[in-house]
Amino acid sequence: MEHLAVVQSLCRVGLEAGDEKFRKQVERLRDRLRKAGDMEATEAIDGLLASQQRAATLQPSRVELSRSLAGERLIGTINPPFDKESGAPLAQIVLEPGGATLPPVLTDELEGALDSMLREWADDGKLRSIGIAPTHSCLIFGAPGTGKTVTAMHIAARLGLPVVLARLDGIMSSFLGTTARNIGTLFEFANRYRCVLLLDEFDALAKLRDDPQEVGEIKRVVNTLLQSLDVRALLGLTVAITNHPRLLDPAIWRRFEVKIEMPLPPATARERLFAEFLAPVTVQDSALHLLAWASDGASGSEVRSMTHALKRYLVLEKPDIAHVHVEASEVLAALRRYHVTSANLEDRTRLAALREDPRTIARTLLYSAESSFTQGSVAQLLGKDQATISRWMKEEPA
């Protein structure tokens, strides 16, 4: 198709506007290109349509609050609170948390737990009629890179509330009494507005008060934090995040009504993450299976690092990659390249196995304990026909 790049740009702009009539016209164009036998242009338009559809489904559905939270509306002209000693801001204001990140990829169990908590806000009148209120505090903990901050932002986006994001390690001061004062200033600000207060690096302040390595100042800080959490429990939602839950003071731990542990993503979740991070590039299902298999034990951030390395390789090898569907064999070729292993994986044995000869790769994938591969999907990955893979398996059994 002549001027394909221009047509793609026009289609992308129109699809981003979300006009359903425009989408129908793009689908008609794709169908006509397919009938004309122009498969390169067909795949390019298909990729754009799939990318736009994926972006639309990722928008978090909001929970309609049946009872307005107390406080003023937080708008862009309002400055965050600051440290009086240094003038440094104590928090960052995120007015549109839904646009800050992609929604988290959660297990069914975690999805259910979040939905249950958010439903409390959808009709809190029934709860208040029997003397209780919706959940006002949530602690999210787990290993680094498991999506804790993304999940917290997702909660705020679902509630339609801005976020006051405070990284508590930045609130600490060497001046006696300043840290406790900063905590008070932060909570005073959050309590004034309708918002979600997000406390990142929470263990920096909420440490055990009997820790022999700490001085009396940490006890004063924890006591101030306890008092501030008690006051805020009556006014708004607080979400805290930590990588080290065992360091938290027991009294702090008890202040949170809901505690959510973020595990490493299972294979199915990693497949979804790869599909989202690869956008607007689309790949075959067998390629997603391979990526999930090769990233066994990876966190969400490690999956993102692998995806970025993959896209760099693919763009260099195929400059128009952002507009086409990528074959599974191309993904395998990318994984075999050395720079993809720069992803921070502790166990790289699976990536190393993909550098073997094709017959060894086929046996490894088909006989892996966690394998979801078939001879057909392995044939796609290796660029062979299924009969060849079948013959290899008969000739060289595991």
Results as ranks from 00 to 15, higher is better:
Thr101Val: 04
Ala298Thr: 08
Val315Trp: 03
Gly170Leu: 13
Ser66Gly: 15
Asp200His: 04
Gly87Asn: 08
Ile260Trp: 03
Val340Met: 10
Lys259Ile: 05
Pro280Trp: 07
Thr388Trp: 04
Leu382Lys: 07
Thr42Leu: 09
Leu29Thr: 10
Thr341Gln: 15
Ala369His: 06
Glu16Lys: 14
Arg194Thr: 09
Met117Pro: 03
Val231Ala: 13
Leu33Pro: 05
Asp211Gln: 12
Ser68Asp: 15
Glu214Lys: 13
Gly125Ala: 11
Trp392Cys: 00
Gly170Glu: 09
Glu85Cys: 02
Ala287Asn: 06
Ser129Ala: 15
Arg355Val: 04
Ile241Pro: 00
Leu247Glu: 14
Arg73Val: 14
Ala309Asp: 00
Asp203Ile: 07
Arg232Glu: 03
Ala322Glu: 09
Leu139Arg: 03
Trp253Tyr: 14
Thr238Arg: 02
Arg391Phe: 01
Leu278Phe: 12
Ala180Gly: 12
Gln59Cys: 03
Ala322Tyr: 01
Leu159Ile: 11
Ala251Val: 09
Ile130Pro: 00
Val239Leu: 12
Val26Phe: 04
Val164Pro: 05
Val13Asp: 13
Leu15Pro: 05
Asp38Cys: 10
Gly216Pro: 06
Leu65Pro: 10
Glu395Asn: 05
Arg254His: 10
Ser66Met: 11
Thr77Trp: 00
Arg181Asn: 09
Arg363Cys: 07
Ala122Phe: 04
Ala152Gln: 00
Asp83Gly: 06
Ile260Arg: 01
Pro265Tyr: 03
Val303Ser: 07
Ser66Lys: 12
Arg359Asp: 00
Arg128Ser: 13
Ala50Asp: 14
Leu345Met: 13
Gly87Val: 08
Tyr313Cys: 01
Arg348Val: 11
Leu354Phe: 08
Arg359Tyr: 04
Thr268Cys: 05
Asn191Lys: 07
Arg119Trp: 08
Lys394Arg: 15
Leu4Met: 09
Thr307Met: 05
Thr374Phe: 08
Gln25Lys: 14
Thr238Asn: 02
Pro265Val: 03
Asp123Ala: 14
Leu102Gln: 01
